[in-house]
Design a protein around this nucleic acid. Structure first.
Length: 730
DNA sequence: AACTAATACTTTTTT
DNA sequence: AGTATTAGTT
């Protein structure tokens, strides 16, 4: 079929299936456009159709369209759907995650940013290790300031598009700025970048080289942005720069689904789109094609409690259906049993398992459900759990590959230099590191020089020489051998595989198996560098989507997905809304939690179950909890309470809890004694109000107690959570 | 240097 | 409760 034929035959059909608003969003191709797309209103459909439309009407060639998404999965899906409309694959379109697209640009112009184009992208684990190394070098006590805290600060600066030299030095930063500066230097020295750098360096590249910006800005005649509400400042600046020339930027998003504020996302961007892009059009998609009337009603009623929304009125033609179930349970195990029973009921009614999802607030909650499903023999998958490339053995093996590809990668080198044990211990490594610092060279080079200078003990010199020889040999081998075979050789000759084969722990065979899988995965790439690139950016390896299994995941991971049946457990104060979100984000934090609840409810097509437990095990200890305020915010006309759990309003929670106790005692005559004790929420030695003393924080008063976990208000240090073991009576 | 034993600390969410 | 890191010992 010729291209012309495809155009004519498809143009009429692909637009006809859209509703008027959707069609307008597709056909308004020129100028800035904001599409406010409520949950389930066909957002992805508009984006993909628009992209195809631009190509089919000849407004742009594939290489002239830029389309950003947040996840690799979304990018993959869009590519596939565009291809379906076109009738052939949408090759050539710059479609991908912000990070993938920024990587592509940065590699092209790496030299301008004083980077080698083969730079590697480090992950969270390497980031933390690097910060720790820097803190050690600067003699900063990592007990007082955890490395993660500094990393968080650095990340938030990067999210705002601030390189170290643009950060204002002030006393509140403490040593953070110095650490940031050193961190960036060390990354550069290793020819490495972190996730934040990908975007940050793009911004710096564009600022320092207007000709480069101009090249891209001129090239991308049309820009499409998915999930606009989740862009952080750096990403937003990047988009604005690229849209400078043509101003054909179409952003699709939903302010009610902004759930990444903690990661630097700014809902504000979507709220002030019309100011940022003068003359912008705004189109609202309000017809929901996903959920029933009750589900939509419950979700809308809930989100109406948020202030500062753009406001949309979602409606559906799908009247009736089941109300949202709200159930109370004695503890997390009972909640899991209940969900298990409901799943089995659905299973008996021939409902497929993959159309059911359990969406939790925090990842530790998945465990109770996994255990339950395992006993019931119900197939399930946990999405977003430990990922292949994050496993220890895989990261170790990758460490070897990275040093082969780039000897100056200090982070990788320190990871594997004594793995398996070669007798290169801490003192040797410290000495080598120090001389590397002094001479401003990489660790690899410092080993080389130490060997040349013959300053080492003969035994150590021999070990290190062999170590370098091995890498030189592998590097040479890579020139004329398939990467797969080289990697196999490395794992073998380094003794790394043997290390796990000789390990007697039950998980060891699995790790050996994973190494095999890694070798196989590398076989799918033409070169080692391309493989390492893939590893840096691709984090999901779930290829089991088609198997009929119940899905268990966090609410964040569920965004963009939909299921017939959705379970929303753990709606308890402190867990959801999460205490930390309240502590750190105040009202803003609460509203983001509420949006998260909204996202959860709107994932459901046919039915949604909300539940809470009166007792939940956290850190191995039972804690009693109150129903979430969000339960009280669900409009009564859209919910039903099957087990007579009583009122859910803040007024009625006491009755609810008592009712749960009564029921639980009927089912289980003797409630476990330790639970009863915990319910008193006080500590035998430190009742609430007790004055105490702590080594580091000084004097304070006990505010609350949960088992051994005390919350104490200190005179100087503020409110801290501590174990009772560390305090004494004042 | 390497192993064992004790102790701290976790658990919000992720490209 | 369980893991990860650290201190102490050989």
């Amino acid at each position: 079929m010729t291209l012309a034929n495809a155009m004519i035959s498809d143009t009429s059909t692909y637009l006809d299936t859209l509703n008027p608003e959707q069609r307008q969003a597709v056909e308004t191709t020129e100028g800035p456009l904001l599409v406010l797309a409520g949950a389930g209103t066909g957002k992805t459909r508009v984006l993909t159709t628009r992209l195809a439309h631009l190509l089919l009407t000849g407004r742009a060639r594939a290489g002239e369209i830029l389309c950003t998404t947040f996840t690799n999965k979304a990018a993959r899906e869009m590519k596939e759907r565009v291809g379906r409309i076109l009738g052939h694959s949408a090759d050539g379109v710059w479609l991908g995650t912000f990070h993938a697209l920024c990587t592509r640009i940065l590699r092209r112009h790496a030299e301008l940013m004083a980077l080698d184009p083969q730079f590697i992208i480090i992950d969270a684990d390497d980031q933390t290790r690097l910060v720790k190394q820097i803190m050690a070098a600067q003699n900063i006590d990592d007990k007082k300031f955890p490395a993660r805290a500094f990393l968080g600060i650095i990340q938030s600066w990067k999210d705002k598009g601030l390189p170290p030299e643009k950060v204002q030095a002030d006393h509140n930063n403490g040593p953070a700025l110095a650490i940031y500066t050193a961190y960036q230097q060390r990354l550069r020295a290793s020819n490495a970048v972190d996730f934040g750098d990908l975007i940050l360096y793009n911004l710096q590249l564009f600022a320092a080289h207007p000709d480069v910006l101009q090249e891209y800005s001129a090239r991308f005649r049309y820009i499409l942005v998915d999930e606009y509400q989740d862009t952080n400042i750096a990403q937003y600046l990047w988009l604005r720069m690229l849209a400078l020339a043509h101003k054909n930027i179409c952003c699709v998003g939903d302010d009610d689904q902004s759930i990444y504020g903690w990661r630097g996302a700014e809902v504000g961007h979507i709220l002030k789109f019309e100011q940022d892009f003068p003359g912008a059009g705004v189109i609202r998609l309000e017809r929901n094609y996903r959920s029933t009337e009750h589900i939509l009603g419950a979700a809308s009623g809930l989100i109406a409690h948020n202030k500062g929304r753009l406001g949309k009125t979602l409606w559906t033609g799908d009247k009736g259906g089941d109300k949202v179930t709200v159930a109370a349970h004695w503890d997390d195990a009972a909640e899991a049993r209940y969900v298990g029973e409901e799943v089995e009921t659905l299973q008996r009614a021939k409902q497929s398992l993959k159309e059911q999802a359990i969406l939790v607030r925090a990842s530790f909650q998945t465990r109770a459900f996994e255990e339950r499903f395992m006993t019931l023999g119900v197939p399930y998958r946990v999405i977003g759990g430990l990922r292949f490339y994050e496993r220890q053995e895989i990261r170790d093996a990758l460490g070897y590959l990275r040093v082969v590809a780039q000897p100056d990668d200090d982070l990788a080198l320190t990871r594997i230099i004594n793995l398996p044990k070669r007798g290169i211990g801490k003192s040797t490594l410290d000495a080598l590191t120090q001389s590397a610092r002094e001479q401003q060279i990489s660790l690899y080079q410092s080993i080389r020089r130490a060997l040349e200078a013959k300053t080492l003990k003969p035994k150590m010199a021999e070990t290190l020489q062999k170590f370098l020889d091995d890498f030189a040999r592998w590097r040479k081998l890579l020139e004329d051998t398939a990467p797969e075979a080289v990697v196999e050789k490395i794992i073998e000759e380094s003794g790394y595989r043997a290390m796990w084969q000789d390990t007697k722990t039950p998980d060891a065979p699995g790790r050996v198996e994973n190494l095999k899988e890694l070798v196989r995965a590398i076989g799918e790439f033409p070169s080692l560098t391309e493989f390492l690139e893939h590893v840096g950016l691709v984090t999901d390896t779930e290829n089991t989507e088609n198997d009929d299994m119940v899905n268990i995941m966090t609410l964040h991971a569920a965004k963009g997905l939909e299921f017939d049946h959705v379970f929303l457990p753990g709606w308890e104060e402190g867990l959801f809304p999460h205490q930390r979100a309240l502590d750190e984000g105040g009202t803003k934090g609460l509203e983001e939690e509420r949006r998260l609840a909204y996202v959860g409810l709107t994932r459901a097509r046919k039915r949604a179950w909300v539940s809470y437990a009166s007792n939940r095990r956290i850190y191995g200890q039972y804690q009693n909890s109150l129903p979430s305020r969000f339960i009280g915010e669900l409009p009564p006309e859209h919910i039903e309470k099957p087990v007579g759990a009583g009122g859910m309003s803040s007024q009625g929670w006491k009755a609810a809890v008592e009712e749960v106790y009564r029921q639980a005692n009927q089912q289980r005559p003797a409630a476990p004694a330790p639970v009863r004790e915990k319910l008193t929420a006080t500590h035998p030695n430190f009742p609430v109000g007790t004055k105490i003393f702590h080594q580091k924080f000084g004097y304070g008063k006990v505010i609350t107690a949960q088992g051994d976990h005390l919350q104490i208000c200190f005179e100087k240090a503020g409110i801290k959570k501590l174990l009772a073991d560390f305090v004494t009576k004042a």
